[in-house]
């Protein structure tokens, strides 16, 4: 029933590795992950591969099969010719751990940098009311199984390691879009964050993320481009600007932009007391030899010293502050 097929599997770790050849039995209806498991059970018990549900639902078995980022459990052997060599390699964009397993921590870090859902103030649990049409767009993005194939295929970081610090990747653009389109999310600065913090501008919409998505999420058309357009709404569009001026309303959001609320300049001017002497900066703690302590081990406290001096206690007494809180506006505002 089974036939022998030729497999090439990358084996190695962070010190190097190479493609190794295997002849392995393949039966009808099997997927690549089955064959990898057969290799494990019969030829290479220590072949490392990450997998979990084996039904395309958890997104663990991401690998590159014949150069294409795929899920091992969703790539059927029948898509290859009988004589075709199947080459299996780990994801290229992330550091390799061993064999087919890579370190995908990059993605978990980026997830942390994206502000989470901000629940609306004053709405108790159980009182959330949303219409199906309003949640549908976000629901599409919540189908994501975090296989990180889109992150892997995106040439912005795949071919340019140096962009990793500035670019969050498609997975987190859909997360940003999901939250921006969430009917009850209380934040209104997600577009700005996507542009400034996530590196939305790096994307040149070549759509590889959409091509590889096993959940068939329209990442580019439904998340990235709408986010880019929403940035345009805010920053570049003349008609929206004009409409806002004329009708004095904003159809885009219910509130104006306030990424980081800044006190009005005039109020700050009149309210500050610049003559006030500020607290004197503290000197850094020094060791017995009068030099800075380099090693955390020998320091008497964890982590680096406070930039304000370790003996500075917050909050400062109000009379020492140079800043005075502006009193609420009276009369006609501005």
């Amino acid at each position: 029933m089974g036939t022998k097929r030729h497999f090439r599997v990358w084996r190695g770790d962070d010190t190097g590795g190479s493609l190794e050849d295997f002849q392995v039995e393949v039966n009808e209806g099997e997927v690549v992950l089955d064959v990898i498991h057969r290799l494990q059970a019969t030829q290479t018990p220590d072949l490392a591969v990450r997998w979990n549900c084996k039904a395309g639902k958890c997104g663990s078995c991401s690998m590159e099969i014949n150069g294409k980022p795929r899920l091992g459990c969703m790539t059927r052997m029948s898509t290859f010719n009988e004589t075709e060599t199947v080459t299996v390699t780990p994801l290229r964009t992330f550091p390799v751990i061993r064999d087919l397993v890579t370190n995908v921590n990059f993605n978990y870090q980026k997830a942390r940098e994206l502000p989470a859902f901000a629940p609306p103030a004053g709405v108790a649990p159980g009182e959330y009311r949303m219409q199906q049409v309003d949640v549908e767009r976000s629901q599409e993005f919540r189908k994501c199984i975090e296989c990180f194939l889109c992150q892997n295929v995106c040439h912005v970081i795949r071919d340019h390691e140096e962009n990793k610090h500035a670019f969050s990747g498609p997975r987190f653009f859909i997360r940003a879009a999901e939250l921006d389109m969430h009917p009850l999310d209380a934040r209104d600065d997600r577009k700005e964050l996507a542009q400034a913090e996530q590196g939305l501008g790096y994307c040149n919409i070549t759509k590889c993320c959409t091509e590889v998505c096993p959940e068939h999420i329209k990442i580019t058309d439904n998340a990235i481009i709408p986010m880019k357009e929403r940035v345009v709404d805010r920053r570049y569009d003349p008609v929206t600007w004009l409409g806002r001026k004329i009708f004095r309303r904003d159809q885009l959001d219910e509130q104006p932009v306030s990424a980081s609320p800044k006190p009005a300049a005039a109020a700050a001017d009149s309210g500050s007391n610049w003559h006030q002497e500020g607290p004197v900066p503290q000197e850094a703690p020094v060791g017995a030899d009068g030099k800075l302590v380099v090693a955390e081990l020998t320091l008497d406290r964890a982590a680096a010293g406070s930039p304000f001096g370790d003996d500075q206690v917050f909050p400062l007494p109000p009379e020492q502050l140079r800043y005075q809180h502006p009193s609420p506006p009276t009369g006609d505002g501005h």
């Binding site: 989470a116 859902f117 629940p119 649990p125 159980g126 959330y128 949303m130 199906q132 629901q139």
Partner: peptide, 12 residues
């Protein structure tokens, strides 16, 4: 209901 305050989006 608590899950909704965490950001879950159930069908409506």
């Amino acid at each position: 209901w608590e899950l909704e305050t965490y950001g879950a989006l159930f069908d409506r």
